[in-house]
Amino acid sequence: MRLVRHPVLCNYYVTYRCNARCSFCDIWEKPSPYIQLRDVEKNLRDLRELGVQVIDFTGGEPLLHQQIDQFLKLAHDMGFITTLTTNCLLYPKWAERLRGKLDMLHFSLDAAVQERHDQGRGVACFDFVLESIKIAKSLGERPDILFTVFSENLDQAEAVYHQIALPNNLMLLLNPAFTYNAVETGPPLTLPELEYLSAFGKRRNVYLNEGFMQLRRDGGNHAAAPVCKAASTTLVISPENELVLPCYHLGEKKFRIEENLKKLYQSEEVRQLISLEGRLPACEGCTINCYMQPSFAVELNSYFWKALPSTLKYNWQKGTWKRLLRQAMV
């Protein structure tokens, strides 16, 4: 049973450019412009009318955009829940200007050992993460540690938790790695590894969407009976000011946003593509977290109930449940 029929999230790519060279990501290989303030202002108004609640300004590395603080202020002032993930190379420079504009600030950290983290990211950014934690806390911010989980770094989860997350009273977000296109992410997590993560996710100050775990045990999305609701829950906007469908990772079709995002999203051609969400050949076996998370939140099924405890836990600790509740009542 569908609970929410409007989009709830916008993945807004401010640029595909990145100052890291992560081995599990190919976005930094793409040439890219930067989004324009004029377009952001118009699109945010339409996103609000469409019912979107959360704006994730993403990339690439979003802090490469010289107006990122202005985008966040616009979205925050309009009542959106704002999120941003950074490798922290530029956060010390931006910290003061971002203060108070972010509801969910994620610092990427994949190991408690400098050499291992920096090797996976392709640049020396470990020390910047630690520095950024100190700066953010001094400003009254509460960043999260986003730990992308592979079989090869699973042994680092305990150390990151005990040495970095707990001492700083930060949430540790466990983000199981996923494959897409030709990007190599190593062997998939085994069933024992998934069980270990599930148990880990129940700890204090740890977030793990148990829906992710169940989806992997079930072999991912199945095109014949899709759980993925990527296109109807999430709007993807490119740095070229295009609406990308059904999701960024497939990018089957891109529509130029000509002044009116709402009208475009409600057009017949877009609606037809949305109807194919999760049913395309490339959707078979998909486990991409950033689209499954909103998918689990809008339809009453087994994944909804699996995801609910962790979602409530995270939003309670971050305080965002109050704003989500107010928005749901409007």
Results as ranks from 00 to 15, higher is better:
265 Y>I: 04
270 V>K: 05
108 S>I: 05
251 G>L: 02
278 G>R: 07
79 G>E: 05
291 Y>A: 00
183 V>W: 11
91 Y>T: 03
162 H>N: 13
85 T>W: 03
288 I>E: 12
57 F>W: 08
163 Q>F: 00
83 T>Q: 14
236 V>R: 06
88 C>D: 09
264 L>G: 01
52 V>G: 10
214 Q>K: 14
186 G>N: 10
152 E>G: 03
185 T>N: 11
189 L>M: 04
72 L>N: 04
230 A>I: 01
174 L>K: 13
257 I>A: 11
292 M>F: 15
298 V>T: 15
113 V>A: 07
47 L>A: 07
263 K>Q: 15
110 D>W: 07
298 V>L: 11
120 G>L: 14
164 I>S: 03
162 H>F: 08
74 L>C: 09
323 R>V: 04
291 Y>K: 00
30 K>S: 08
251 G>V: 02
172 L>N: 10
32 S>F: 10
149 V>F: 08
43 N>M: 09
37 L>S: 01
114 Q>P: 06
13 Y>V: 15
235 L>A: 05
172 L>C: 02
159 A>N: 12
122 G>P: 02
179 T>H: 14
163 Q>M: 05
225 A>F: 07
224 A>S: 15
48 R>L: 15
297 A>R: 14
162 H>W: 08
310 S>F: 02
158 E>N: 06
303 Y>Q: 01
264 L>H: 08
171 M>L: 11
101 K>A: 07
51 G>E: 03
286 C>Y: 00
193 E>W: 04
177 A>C: 12
95 A>I: 07
317 Q>C: 02
177 A>I: 13
240 E>A: 13
210 E>R: 00
267 S>Y: 04
228 C>G: 12
19 N>G: 05
204 R>L: 06
77 D>L: 10
239 P>L: 02
272 Q>F: 02
183 V>M: 07
47 L>C: 08
275 S>N: 08
191 L>P: 13
82 T>F: 01
293 Q>C: 00
14 V>G: 06
278 G>V: 02
299 E>D: 12
297 A>Q: 14
107 F>T: 04
71 F>Q: 04
166 L>P: 05
156 Q>A: 14
66 Q>E: 14
283 C>G: 06
